[in-house]
Amino acid sequence: MTKIVILGAGYAGMAAAIQLAGRKVPVTLVNASDRFAERLRLPMAATGQEVADLRIPSLLAGTGARFEQGWVTSVDLGRRTVSLEDREINFDILVYALGAVPDTSSVPGAEEHGYTLDDRDLLPSRLAAAANVVVGGAGLTGIESAAEIASRYPSATVTLVGRSAPGATMSPGARDHLQRALASLGVRTVEGTIEKVLPAGVRVNGDFLPADVFLWAGGTKVSPLAAGTETDERGRIVTDAALRSVSHPFVWAVGDAAAIRQQYGIMHGTCQGGMPTGVHAALSIVRTLRGKQPKKFRFGYYHTPVSLGRGDGVVQFTHGDDSPRRFYLTGRLAARYKETVTASPWPTYRRMKRIPASGVFWPHGKRS
């Protein structure tokens, strides 16, 4: 019997595991923690708001998928083994879904003096006592984090630092609403490069910004465990059109760990794209086990939903290449829309065993 092992139980890895198990294909899912990290809700968790405590064994209960908790120390592609701290697991097919983590090494001092959203168990008490908070990175994660912090701790001075203005890739109307909402929450925005993180603040463009807490919400990096396969300049596994490694066809790469080329370029890491890659890889593996050729993966972006605290938000609808359309939502309607999107992964996992083997339709109307 073919042994299939999935490394990583994020959105992409979990999607692949449940889809394979739903097809009665034996699969082992490996993850360092038994907690399923809802990354879309990490800014809420970091500010002490109650979020669901989802555990991977409970999510997999009744699916037939096997869970192995352990920290992966190496992958031997020649022997087809995965080494954990205290044991080895053999595989015939590997689904590589280890994703990405915050790259604090890219900013001097950030690792020693900063926090990331992965420190969600520490951050609420630190933020509650902080007079000045600096959030590094003005992308979606940074914007949502700054808004949640300012909403939750209104006495703190919150500064959002990024190389470009918040919402720079949105249409003018959506961008204006986003920036007005941040200003109304008291979030100060600074365009510039963070040169160094110090014990009591950060240096930006030669100026010093005081910070009792520095939260890094900027760039990410992937695990070095993909070494041995062909990777891109960021260490992501280069895939063919079906999501197989171009150098090792028995390895399938999904989510943030994969460099997946579409007509518009390389996909960027989001839950919006991660779950479809996991499902597509699983369905393609099923096809190969049945002696059929896997299908080409096609994906187009649909929207960019951003929370601005609990009662406000922006939803920028996009073209397939992630460029903005003219249509967008703001205010409470956008907040409700974003909450529906954020709440969707677990109900989606429950429905995955009913996805037809012939293909998957995503909201943008394309079929994988």
Rank of each mutant, 00 (worst) to 15 (best):
I194E: 09
F317T: 07
F361A: 03
V315R: 08
D103W: 02
A131I: 00
T277N: 12
Q293S: 13
Q272Y: 15
L123N: 01
G219Y: 02
G255C: 04
M1Q: 14
P249I: 03
G359A: 05
R287T: 04
H364P: 08
D76W: 06
R325E: 13
S223R: 02
A181L: 09
V306A: 02
G219Q: 05
D53A: 07
H268C: 06
P363N: 07
T342H: 07
V306M: 10
M275A: 10
D240E: 00
T229I: 14
A156V: 07
G219F: 00
S151E: 08
A174I: 06
V315F: 14
R80F: 14
L209E: 08
D86F: 04
I194R: 06
V279D: 07
T104W: 07
I355Y: 01
T189F: 03
L182M: 14
I355A: 02
A129V: 04
A357G: 14
A334G: 09
D322Q: 04
A335R: 06
A253E: 15
G265R: 05
P57C: 08
Q19A: 12
Y264L: 00
H364M: 01
T2I: 02
R234Q: 05
A16H: 13
L243E: 03
L60I: 08
D76E: 10
T340K: 15
I18K: 11
T277E: 06
A46F: 07
L198S: 09
L122W: 04
K338W: 03
L289K: 02
V72E: 15
Y337L: 05
A61E: 12
S223P: 07
V134G: 01
H268Q: 14
P172N: 01
T73R: 14
K24A: 09
M267E: 14
G269I: 09
R188A: 11
H248G: 12
L198N: 04
G228K: 09
H280G: 10
M170T: 00
W71H: 12
V135L: 10
L329I: 09
R66V: 15
P324N: 12
A46E: 05
D103N: 12
R336P: 03
Q262E: 13
A357P: 11
S74R: 11
V204I: 12
T81L: 10
V360M: 12
P345V: 09
L60R: 00
